[in-house]
Simulated scan of single mutants.
Amino acid sequence: MTSFAAPLMNCNMISKIEPHPVTGRIFNIQRYSLHDGSGIRTVVFFKGCPLRCPWCANPESRSHRTTFQRNKAKCIQCKTCAMDVDECPSGAWQQVGTDMTVDDVIAEVTKDDIFFTTSHGGITLSGGEVLSQAKFAIALLEKLKTLGYQTAIETSGHGNAKHLIKIAKLCDQVLFDFKIMDPDKAKTIIGIHLEHALDNFKQLAEHKIHLVPRLPLIPGYTMDLINIDKILDYLRPFKLTDIHLLPFHQYGAAKYQTLGIEYQLQDVPAPSNLVVENIRQHIAAHGYHVIIGG
C-alpha cells in the first residue's frame, strides 16, 4: 500500500506566516477635544458597553455589534430604500462601528500630531467601555506609548481587574467615572456591580496610577448631595487632588430616535450654572481642584 505524507513546512515557510492583526470595533474618532484629558485630545470611541445608563450621550456605543441608524433629517423617503448604507441616495442610513487594526487607528490619530505637540495633549480611549475590548486597547496603547504619545482612558471600572491594571499602566491618566453610590440602585438602574468597580479603583490606586475621578451630574440620579458626599467619603483615603464634574446635557438626545431607542430623560432639563457652581464649591471645600467639563 502506498502512503502519502503531508509535506513538511521548512523554517523559511513558517517565518512567512504572519499572525492575524488584532482588530477593534470603533464607532468614532473625535478630534480637537478639550474635556477628555490634558491639552487637546483625539478621542477613540470603542463600541460596546455592559452598562445601560439612562443618560448615556452615546447610545450607539451600547451594542458591540455593528449597527445602523437612520438620520430622519437626511431621509428623502425614497420608495427603493433597502436600508443599505451603500445604496442610500441621501446618506440617511449610516453604519455605526468599523473594525480597525492598531495601524488603522494610528494612521488616523497621527494626523493630529501638531495639536498634541503645541498643547501637551494626546489620545484618549473612550466608549462605550474600553474594558469591553481590552485586548485591542492594550495593543493600541502599547503602540502609542512606543511612539511617544500621551495616553488616557475613560472608564467606569466595570470589567476585568487584570485587564484594567495592564491598560492603566500604559496610560498617563485614568479618568474614572463615579455615578450612583447606592449598590442596589446602581445595579438596577445602570447595571454596574458597584463593589467590584470600587475595588478596581482601589487596585489602581495601589499601583500608583494617576487617577482622576469624574462625577456626571444627572438630575434625579447622581447629583444630590447625599450621593456626592458618599463619593467624597469613598475618595478621602486616596488623597487625590482633582475631580472633574460632567453636567448633564441633551446633546445625545437625537441619537436615540435614529437608533429607535426610547430616551427616558427627554424632558429632563440640564442643571443650571448656579446649581453646578454650588456643587463645585461644595466639593472644593473638601480640598479638591474641581474642573467643570473635565
Score class of each variant (00 low, 15 high):
N58S: 12
V96H: 01
L51A: 11
P54E: 09
G48S: 05
A82M: 13
L125S: 08
S132P: 03
K74D: 13
C81T: 10
G127L: 12
C53F: 05
N58R: 00
W93H: 15
T124R: 03
V109M: 11
A134L: 07
V130Y: 04
T98C: 06
P89H: 01
S126D: 07
P89L: 00
V96Y: 02
F136G: 03
I138A: 07
V109I: 15
K79T: 13
L131F: 11
D113F: 05
S126P: 11
D113S: 11
D113L: 13
G128F: 00
D99A: 03
G127S: 11
A107K: 14
T118Y: 07
S63M: 00
P59R: 07
G48E: 06
A134V: 08
C75G: 11
Q69S: 15
I114G: 01
C78Q: 05
D99C: 08
R62P: 02
P54K: 03
R62D: 01
T124K: 01
A134H: 12
C53K: 11
G128D: 11
D104H: 01
V96W: 07
D86R: 03
V96P: 09
K74A: 13
S126T: 09
R65K: 15
V102K: 09
L51G: 11
Q69K: 15
D99H: 13
A137F: 04
G97Y: 07
K111F: 06
C49Y: 09
V130C: 08
T110I: 13
S63N: 14
F116K: 04
N71T: 13
L131H: 09
C75H: 08
D112K: 02
I76L: 14
C53W: 09
S132C: 11
A107P: 09
V96D: 06
A137I: 02
I114P: 03
Q95S: 02
E87C: 02
C88L: 00
E87V: 04
